[in-house]
Amino acid sequence: MKQPLVRFTNVSFTYARAQGRGGWQALRDVNLEVFEHEFVAVLGRNGSGKSTLAKHVNALLTPTSGQVLVAGLDTSVPENVWEIRQKVGMVFQNPDNQLVATTVEEDVAFGPENLGIPPAEIQRRVTEALEAVGMLQYRLHPPHRLSGGQKQRVAIAGIVSMRPKCIVLDEPTAMLDPAGRREVMETIHRLNKEEGITVLHITHHMDEVIGADRVLVMDQGRIVLEGTPREVFSQGELLRELHLDVPQITDLAQRLASRGVSIPSGILTVNEMVMHLCPSD
C-alpha cells in the first residue's frame, strides 16, 4: 500500500491559556491521511479547528498528544522541522501579511534563499513559479500595487518556488472579492493537476470544495464527516446542523427532492441539474 504524505494519528491539541484559566482544546483525537497528488478540502465554521489542523501539517504547531508524520518525518522532532517546511508550504488568509519583499520576484525568491539554493537556480525557479501562477509580467511590481487575488497568487508562487510536495492553504480566499477568489481557485487546481502538488485547502466557502477529491468537515476539533464532495453534500441535514450551507444548487436539488421531484441529492453544478431535469438535451 502507498505511504501517505501526511498522517495524523490520534492528534489532540490544546492552546495554552494565560492565567491558568485552562486551555482551549482545538483538536480532539484527529486521524487523517493525505496521499500524494490528492486535493483535499477541509470545511468548518469559525473555531472548528481547521486552521489549527493546517498549522500542524508544517510544524508551526505540534500535537499536545498523538503524532503527525509528514513524508515519514515526525513534526514533534525539532531536527525535522526545516525539512518538513520544505516539503509542505503554507499560504495564509491575509495576502498583505505574508509578502516579505519589496518586489514580486524578490518575494518569490525568499523561500529558495532560505533553503540556500544557488542564485542561478533561484532565478530559474522564480521565473517558473511566477509562470505557473500567471504572474510573470508582474515580476518587478511592488506587492502593494497588486490586487488581493494577485497578491495571493504571488504568495502561492513563493511556495511553489520551494518545490514542495504539498501546499496547505488556510482560507486563502477569505479576504478576496469574487474575481480574486476565482483566480486563486483556478491557480490551485492547475497546480494540483499539472504539477501534481498535493493540496490541503481550508475554507468555509462551500463552492470551493466542489473540485476536491475528498472533503473533510470539522466541528469542535473533530472530523465529523468525510467523503467525496457529492457524498458530503448529500448530507444536507447534518451540514445545516453544523451551520454550514450546501451550495445553492445542491440545496435546490434537495428541496426539489423533498417535494417529490425525482432528482439525486448530490447535485453539485448547474450543468448536472440541467442534465437531470432535461435529460433529452
Partner: peptide
C-alpha cells in the same frame, strides 16, 4: 516567514 523556512541569515543565499 517561518513557514517559508526563514531562520535568520545563516546558510541563506541571495537571489
Amino acid at each position: 516567514m517561518e513557514a517559508r523556512g526563514y531562520r535568520g541569515g545563516q546558510g541563506r543565499t541571495k537571489f
